[in-house]
Amino acid sequence: MTAPSFLSPRLRMALTIAAALGSLVATSVGATAQETKSKLDAVLARGTLIVGTGSTNPPWHFKGANDELQGFDIDIARIVAKGLFDDAGKVQFVQQSSDARIPNLTTDKVDMTCQFMTVTASRAQQVAFTIPYYREGVGLLLPIKGKYKNYADLKAAGDAITVAVLQNVYAEEMVHAALPQAKVDQYDSVDLMYQAVNSGRAEAAATDQSSINWLIVQTPGRYVSAGYSWDPQTYACAVKRGDQEWLNFVNTALHEAMTGVEFDTYAASFKKWFGVELAPPATGFPVEFK
């Protein structure tokens, strides 16, 4: 579940039209100039990696109190930059709304996009996804001093509990997939949803597992996660279609961050934003083929 961005339907349509017009012009202009080199060579020659990402969704990509972009997506981009230039700082971020993720790739505004992008087959027809770097799901946030301690307690409570959730067409359906009898209260914004849990108006809040983990990291000793999550979604970076060499490079950088030489960087970031300590990948037989 990605955060609902403002102006969404109108924006998406306008972006699609603009990008379609853009690529139309691009094909007519670029028809004569043959592209032989990979984006990989272009990026290496330029000396900086240009990454599209957002700026309003902690813990993925947001401005800290120092007004600098930070978050898990930002760290992932830096891992790729380190792979390219041996310098995690050689990356330039282009801020974009969620709806601009695909148009900005197809019009070459950015070399790649790392912006909690859910992998879907229909999106894969427009851009090339890298290997995943996170699996999102919906989880349940509980107050630490509450009556219910975990998912089993909540489920046993049946219709005695109310679950706060961000307003959404599928909100009821989503909560009922995990807690079939629970009452569902929908809220306009994240702060109101957390407020409902704080004030006891709701026994639990259902939201992205990553948001729950981030809230627990930020305000230790106030909340716990119910320890159950559902509705899995794969997050991956994306690049423009049609450049296998560039895609292979980004895949390699991400793969080695999760299984090889850059694992410590990846694990440190994972701990920082999600509060979870990762076990180092097993040595010996390659983990991919287990």
Binding site: S55, T56, P58, G64, A65, Q95, Q96, V190
Partner: peptide, 22 residues
């Protein structure tokens, strides 16, 4: 703000996303 220029509105939204004070 939609094309990523951090003018007053986007700057405000960035602060809101961090602080949850809408």
């Amino acid at each position: 703000s939609v094309i990523g220029v951090t003018e007053l509105l986007l700057a405000t939204q960035q602060v809101i996303s961090r602080t949850f004070i809408g």
